[in-house]
Amino acid sequence: MIYEKEKRYIVPFDDVPSPRAEMPEISVDERRGNFDEVETGFPESVAVTEAKRCLSCRRCLGCALCWAECGVEAIDFDMPDEVLELEFDDVIITRGQDNAFSAIDPAWGYGTYADVITDLQFERMLSPTGPTDGRVVSPLDGEIPARLAVIQTEPEGDENHLLSSVVLGVNESILALDRTEGLKITLISPLSPDFKERFLADAEKIAGLSMVEGKAGSVQRSGEGDPLTVTYSHEGADHTETFDLVVLLTKPVLSSETQALSKKLDKPVQ
């Protein structure tokens, strides 16, 4: 439940933003040579205002409106959690579906611009059962993009990741181009030798996709309503180009729970 934990949606309440209460203190001069308490405590009005900032985080309200609406009485609030005590001869730890990715550098605009999305989000977008029924649209304004960039965010590091993420990027491009009229895609990545040898020739044949061997630098928007500007280096020169949608090839990381489990049982993660 990665989005619940890390990028949780919070309703834009009317009282946001409002500053946090500051703790009053006695001055430094009053502190020398004695042990009087430094922090003097919130006055009542400050405490109440501060307490009112609490968002009362909660998902299901337990209001039972769904239960009232359900014609077949399928809702059961008392369905218990089950506790199982099991014994095994072996344990295999895998990364699971918790698609945690290594912290995405703010330079890529992810989280700031709604039209910058990850490869995993793009995968869901392309799925026929996904939120847009498989249509490629910009989550910023619902428009169908004409120019799309797929860029590698973590070019350094392991070759395997570099290979599989670019293959994913190309495959996503194949699907996107098939479904979107007049779409042009630019894929920017330092292509690994392995990729070049095995896939580049085929990838370059795909109409509408241009493979750019290079390194992307940043994603920015100069003004509201403008398209995104991507800077990248290619063949020793710096380029800037504008796009309607940017897809980031991300590097998955292990969730801390998986790491802890692996450490505890002294088993590698497969």
Binding site: V11, P12, F13, D14, A51, K52, C54, L55, S56, R58, C60, L61, G62, C63, A64, W67, F77
Partner: peptide, 26 residues
């Protein structure tokens, strides 16, 4: 909600109830 609790037996404070209402309002 304020007195006996929701379907899970969680009793809300007035503030928590206000937040729930404000969420729906927004």
């Amino acid at each position: 909600f304020l007195e006996s609790g929701n379907m899970y037996g969680e009793v809300f404070t007035q503030h928590e109830f206000n937040r729930a209402i404000d969420m729906i309002i927004v």
